[in-house]
């Protein structure tokens, strides 16, 4: 029986009295590569913050690794790369090594610091301060931190916004390897439906509520989605998915 890594039931979240998420129910299974898409303000990042306990839902249930969120304690199983750090202070005196080590201090199974730094090609930056780095280097540092605890679930919120095309492609290759070789469950939030078509196997499309949840095959054959996106857009996304699957 497949294990649900994440499941939400009737999740509703309000901000200043306005419903940002309405009745969201979906599940992510072990080994899945889920793409989360939707327009600006559709609640993608808010959904993730609810799942991680950063925001409190008004209604609904959330389970992580089969446990209700309230009693879940195995946070080392989750690696999270936020869209952007809430307020990264450029004068923050933490080095790359110190930031990456943040992901290693909890109980559990960790990668060697050298391994993680090498994997993200930031070994040469290990004693540099995070505030001195370019946005792309900061993003690689944050990903190294997220990977340091050998997470079973990796949540990536708009991870490649500031990366150059080469680094971006390498990044997505890495996520595919983690998913394919190590069975890491991946949730990728992005506006770039082309990227989703290339790498994700299933799709959750949000617009405050769930517009679509299912596999790419279901998405591509859904007349509702053709009506929602337009046939041309649906065709482009599906074409990219088909090409990457070959």
């Amino acid at each position: 029986m497949p294990v649900n890594i994440i499941s939400t039931e009737n999740l509703t979240f309000c901000y200043n009295g306005i419903e940002v998420l309405q009745d969201i129910s979906f599940a992510v299974q072990k080994g899945d590569y889920l793409g989360v898409a939707g327009p600006n303000g559709s609640g993608k990042s808010t959904l993730i913050k609810n799942i991680l306990g950063i925001l409190q839902p008004r209604e609904g249930n959330i389970s992580l690794f089969g446990q209700p969120l309230a009693v879940f304690r195995q946070w080392g199983k989750i690696g999270y790369l936020p869209q952007r750090l809430a307020a990264l202070n450029n004068h923050f005196p933490g080095t790359v090594r110190e930031i990456v080590q943040l992901g290693m201090e909890r109980k559990g199974n960790f990668l060697n610091i050298k391994q993680v730094l090498q994997m993200m090609d930031i070994e040469h930056l290990s004693s540099r301060l995070i505030g001195e780095l370019s946005y792309g280097e900061q993003q690689r540092t944050m990903l190294a931190r997220a990977l340091a605890s050998k997470p079973e679930l990796l949540i990536l919120d708009e991870p490649t916004t500031a990366l150059d095309p080469q680094t971006r492609d390498n990044f997505y290759q890495l996520t595919q390897e983690l998913n394919g070789n190590q069975g890491t469950t991946i949730i990728l939030i992005t506006h770039d439906t082309g990227v989703l078509g290339n790498y994700a196997r299933s799709l959750l499309y949000l617009d405050k509520k769930v517009v679509f949840s299912g596999t790419f095959e279901d998405f591509c054959t859904s007349p509702d989605m053709a009506g929602f996106f337009g046939q041309a857009s649906q065709h482009i996304i599906c074409h990219q998915h088909d090409r990457s699957s070959v």
Binding site: K49, L52, G53, I54, R73, W75, I78, Y80, P82, L85, A86, A87, L88, F92, G94, E98, I99, L102, G103, E105, R106
Partner: peptide, 18 residues
Amino acid sequence: YHDLFAVTFDEELAQSMG
């Protein structure tokens, strides 16, 4: 130290680490 460092770096990130 670990918790203080994490919260000082980014409070939301610290929350996501439990």
